[in-house]
Design a protein around this nucleic acid. Sequence first.
DNA 1: TTGTAAGCGTTATCAC
DNA 2: GTGATAACGCTTACAA
Lengths: 344, 344
Amino acid sequence: MAVTLRDVASRAGVSAMTVSRVVNGGGGVDPETQRKVEDAILALDYVPNRLARGLISHKSKTIGLIVPDVVNPFFAPVVRGAETTARKAGYRVLLCNSEADLRLEREYIEDLIAHRIEGLLIAPATDRSRVSLLALQKSGFPIVLLDRSLPDFDCDSVVSDSVAGARKLVEHLIKIGHRRIAHFTESDDVSTGRDRLEGYRQALEAARIPYSEELVFRTTVDRIGGYRAAQHLLALDPLPTAIFTVNNMTAVGAMQALRERGLAVPKDIGLVCYDDVEHLAVLSPFMTVVDQPAETFGSLGAQLLFERIADKAGERSRRIVLQADLIVRESCCARTGIPGRAAH
Amino acid sequence: MAVTLRDVASRAGVSAMTVSRVVNGGGGVDPETQRKVEDAILALDYVPNRLARGLISHKSKTIGLIVPDVVNPFFAPVVRGAETTARKAGYRVLLCNSEADLRLEREYIEDLIAHRIEGLLIAPATDRSRVSLLALQKSGFPIVLLDRSLPDFDCDSVVSDSVAGARKLVEHLIKIGHRRIAHFTESDDVSTGRDRLEGYRQALEAARIPYSEELVFRTTVDRIGGYRAAQHLLALDPLPTAIFTVNNMTAVGAMQALRERGLAVPKDIGLVCYDDVEHLAVLSPFMTVVDQPAETFGSLGAQLLFERIADKAGERSRRIVLQADLIVRESCCARTGIPGRAAH
DNA sequence: TTGTAAGCGTTATCAC
DNA sequence: GTGATAACGCTTACAA
């Protein structure tokens, strides 16, 4: 794999420049010469060195993609969407899992810059990711925010309207008779969490239901977080009649805890969440959700990024708000009375 | 972002070499000089250029990772495992989704080589991926196969024993009374598919149950494939009493089709599969599966790869066989008679 | 302890 | 149409 342009050149009996011309297909090469060079390339298994190319052209043909976790059922499609779009544009993707850890995320960013990525797609860990991005952004480096926005940070982004989505979900619960509705939210330094909480408040307010701190549980947005929050919730008396969780994995964890206490969803308690749970939805279509087109976050994000890279994006930052659809299933059946103390 | 070593050098009033020494921390620099250089680095926001470094050192500090699809619930954790291990080793990962397409895969490989990755982790699309890898492997380029092995291709790999796993699954079905067992398999040019079919045959043979082509359905290993295969299966008379699918998504699709025909799992028909369905297992723990430690495929694979890259792996190729565990749940309740024609 | 010179594999520029 | 030369940003080898 150490074959260079020069090796090809000497085998073909031409200069390096001629080989370069053939490789880059610009034309201006005698057909006969071209053939000789192509033969040599094939014979030697020559593969151009992008490192060298990048060094001189300032184009690494790579972008960075930072997400909290590829395994997350929301981010996995985001990653695929971004990668597919990048491939079509001739770019490779350096994938990073920040684990929602600011320090790790910062290290990734620095290293990606060292690798001279031409742009960065990032679902920032928290609002404080801002400081890691500020210098980059000021220097005009192409950045696109995915899913989460950052306060006081003007930048291209692809998001959904979490306030509206959450409101739809909670309004639906209210419409079918729920009034004591709990919410599982995440630490308040993530925009989507804040917005979904805000949507929850708005829906309550519109229905003149008082907002109660007691019904809002702050937790990690994974299964274990949902599980624990539900355990705490189960100590309430009276129990809420429904729960709205900030995302799908939290809902799955909540469901698990409820089951263990003998509470059936939706018979004994309603459960709705942001984000669908793909396979689950097929097999047990009982959870009412707001579904986001996850893959589109990735593909549109990449598209915005490539426009920036090509300098075809203009001065102003663009913000794409994707539609999130309410999918009503069965997990929040209408209810009128106050639920029994099903478990203790 | 166009700050170079020289810029730092001139600002600090030293030579480029001195800056290089400071950056690489080799020592042998006067503390006072060191401080001046560090100040300059900070002041200028200098980030070393890995492209340039890689060009001279022949170390890009990147590896390639090719999987059919990151969204696949098996490969997503594989990717995370690999990326985490790579990060700890100071490497970045170029992620590629081959979409199980040989041509795409081949293009990826070539481009990754152009990017001078130091090694390749790959879950090959099919047996025919071999030709795309042969030249590389012969030249001693570090490659580790994940999940799938390739015939006549001697190479480090991390796999599970699919024959044994499948056999366990089918033996379990037989033990609880099933004798007419269908199998959904994939095209026979994927090692795991072949092996699982072989495990199915072995289990039947051990129980003196004749193997019947009629009960083996070849399909794509996604939800839609499972769905379609199940639809064909439902035309059989008598119906099989149980189905063993080659992976989890196929099982989910099958389940969907069965449901639509009014067949309940496991009441009316048994269903088992290779690979667990994470969230589903929590909420509807009815499917008996063979569970693979997916993330470990990635992390161990990366480990093998880095040993190769560091040339600490020796001549012979290593093959790690991970244990896949049978998890018995309820999806294959014991049965004795012949099932009714539940749907038509 | 620090600096100089050469070169990694390519491409831009300008001759021929 | 083709080739020499310099340069991209860094490190290795050697010199001071």
